[in-house]
């Protein structure tokens, strides 16, 4: 019971790191990006390549995964995404579905369709008994790392100059420009950081979530749930939504494997119908 709860928390934390970039681009910037999972996948595959072919140790791969996905995000933002911000939601949906198709197919072509495995260093494997729980060391590692990231993000958004610039740019790009805020750069950096975090999540998560070319499609709805249920007014809502989703998913699949996912979707629909702006959102 407690172990399942812990696994759910770890899973939820992971989801948060994967989805928090989307919480900003979709939640705050109101840009529907269904291709967010592709950046996570890029991070995951970067780790696989670095470890398998380059012999780079796992811990060193994590920042590398962040960088690869962030650079990819930055390049795509500057070349493609920024032209899409003012388009209709339908255009954004189509555009990002196109990117997903390309990512899935391109990855299959380059890396094959099979599932990739990452060999964790020995000190991260195994379980220990802690507070009466049978805790996986790797999951504990994820909880600590992702928890720190979540705190850092919240502080970054609320307490730094960049955070306030981002909030101003999101509120009203025109006014922000008038105040001398380089809106384009702020969005690009935000997009890159969000993509980078997804990449980091992809690297961390391949052990738990599995990594194959269909990754962006398999987890698309999970990322969207985090944002839609969490609401669009910051990262606290998505964080709580991630935890709830993680716990519900792990517990659901453990106790009622046949219909675990069914219940997750049902709850999501119920939440969105009762609270269209999410559990923690505000209407706008």
């Amino acid at each position: 019971m407690a172990t399942i709860l812990f696994d759910g928390v770890a899973y939820g934390m992971l989801l948060f790191v994967l989805a928090c970039g989307l919480a900003v681009t979709l939640g705050l910037m109101n840009f529907v990006n269904l291709a967010h999972g592709a950046f996570a996948m890029a991070g995951g595959y970067a780790t696989v390549l670095l470890m398998d072919r380059g012999g780079v140790p796992f811990l060193a791969c994590l920042p590398a995964a962040f960088l690869v996905a962030a650079v990819l995000g930055l390049v795509l933002e500057r070349t493609l995404y920024r032209h899409m911000y003012r388009r209709s939601h339908l255009d954004q949906v189509l555009f990002s579905i196109g990117l997903v198709f390309m990512a899935v197919s391109g990855t299959t072509w380059a890396m094959g369709a099979s599932q990739q495995t990452i060999k964790l260093p020995a000190w991260l494997t195994g379980r220990v008994d802690m507070l009466g729980m049978h805790v996986g060391i790797y999951r504990a590692f994820i909880v600590i790392l992702c928890g720190l990231l979540a705190v850092g993000l919240q502080l970054g958004l609320t307490h730094t100059r960049f955070g306030s610039r981002l909030r101003a740019a999101v509120d009203d790009a025109r006014v922000a420009r008038g105040l001398g805020i380089p809106v384009g750069t702020v969005f690009a950096v935000t997009f890159a950081v969000g993509s980078g975090l997804a990449g980091l999540g992809g690297a961390l998560g391949s052990e738990i979530l599995g990594l194959d070319p269909n990754f962006p499609l398999r987890f698309m709805i999970y990322f969207l749930i985090v944002v839609a249920v969490g609401g669009t007014s910051g990262v606290v809502g998505p964080f709580i939504a991630s935890l709830l989703l993680g716990i519900a998913d792990v517990a659901g699949k453990y106790y009622i494997p046949a219909i675990g996912a069914f219940i997750v979707y049902l709850v999501m629909i119920a939440v969105l119908v009762l609270r269209p702006h999410g559990l923690f959102g505000r209407p706008r």
Partner: peptide, 9 residues
């Protein structure tokens, strides 16, 4: 996918 992206762009 490429077609779709180009089409929208």
């Amino acid at each position: 996918g490429l077609f779709l992206v180009a089409f929208v762009m």
